[in-house]
Design a protein around this nucleic acid. Sequence first.
DNA 1: CGCTCGACTTGATACAGATCAGTGCATGAC
DNA 2: GTCATGCACTGATCTGTATCAAGTCGAGCG
Lengths: 252, 252
Amino acid sequence: MGHDETAIGRMAANTIADDGDEQKFCSTCAFGAVCVGRGVDKLALTDLHCLVEHVGPYRAGESIFRTGDRFGAIFAVRSGTVKTRLVDLEGREQVLDFHLPGELIGLNAIHPEMYPCDAIALDSVEVCRFSFPALATLATRIPQIQQELFRRLSKGIGDASVRNQESSADERLAAFLLELSARYAARGFATHSLRLSMSRSDIANYLGLAAETVSRVLRRFQDRGLLDVDGREVAIGNVTALRDIARNLLRG
Amino acid sequence: MGHDETAIGRMAANTIADDGDEQKFCSTCAFGAVCVGRGVDKLALTDLHCLVEHVGPYRAGESIFRTGDRFGAIFAVRSGTVKTRLVDLEGREQVLDFHLPGELIGLNAIHPEMYPCDAIALDSVEVCRFSFPALATLATRIPQIQQELFRRLSKGIGDASVRNQESSADERLAAFLLELSARYAARGFATHSLRLSMSRSDIANYLGLAAETVSRVLRRFQDRGLLDVDGREVAIGNVTALRDIARNLLRG
DNA sequence: CGCTCGACTTGATACAGATCAGTGCATGAC
DNA sequence: GTCATGCACTGATCTGTATCAAGTCGAGCG
């Protein structure tokens, strides 16, 4: 049974949530649900459709945009997982975030008018491209879209919750797994069974730990019966215990 | 001469940058400069003026808003310094950021529609209050204002640069001081001489260090001749060396 | 004035987690 | 099949910084 759930999780994560054809948006769409839910008229929806462009698939390792590229659009992840990262002068990488289906990337490029980081596909990735000038123009006509943009941007601020401060490795990893699980759940994927599309060292880098520490903590969690690790498949067994470990790092 | 600069810095930091009367905006205003610079018509400027409300002064320790308050407005700091922070269930504080004159606070409240943190005055603080619904409505009519809001929101995303990852105490503190200095400079205050309006433990908390460590690192920097510390007055002596120490944490 | 109180500094010790080094196990090339 | 390569895991040290514990300084106050 644990196996079944894992299989489902893997499938869901690697599949497009739905067709997202000409008539309706993807179920995970950043704007579709909001617009439909708030009674935006059909004409406006058509306008929004016109400026969406499906791009991809990208293969693992390919970049959707790179640091310094001129900013022209924001992207919504349709399928797969994207990591954003910086590479400093000495070539060291710093992982900024992971982005799951339904989440937006490129929002931090509006201000400097160029992308301030690389966006790299971790597995097979498809995205929707929204031309930002067009979107902004549309937003002046359709307050609901402006509002949704404001909300999305606001959401991204001060979101470094998981990595912050001198919390222990256990706390960080527990919080990381729970947050990932919650984000998948919010998009309708399996909740307690997840496939980590990123390597151990990506996780470590993101959390400010060494890769070895991530291994050790995962093993410790498994030994305590909190979860089941099989390579990149993780089945969360005891959510309460994990939540208890992570409690100081989780807001929502 | 070092003393003179310090005195100037202190004065500037504790004084309102200019009058900000009915006819024009504060020189540090979040919107004024942009609007004037981009040829927004006078009628629009009047509208913007109408929704600004000067609030304060707050004394050190008083709060501008608190966690859970219903979101209704964003604020621009006119004078003084504001810290934003979370307090967890066990009563432990986590400092999220410091906000200098000209900077906006409350942007992260748009999404949850309530303030997700406390905003506390560190010294005597005056702010401008912008009703957000009114501002959003105005933004649909004046694209430049919408654009400026987008830019400001974008700027706040992924800005945890200084605190991130497993950088050393030296790196963090160097980066912190340089960033503070740069932010003051950007608002027209003294560059290499600054008054820290926050306590050592606030700095430590913000950077994810112990207060003792902050003391020790400051002393080490002073011993190396990089800067001059006198209580909360800091005069940066060797910017290059500091920048060298901090290099991995500074983007711009 | 001496008192207390808070913010800051300094020193001694302990420990979490980095780092180094090595092993195992896939996958893909040839 | 062998070999190379990349990722994950584990064990043995090492170290930066937290923590504990005093001690100093200055401000406000009876």
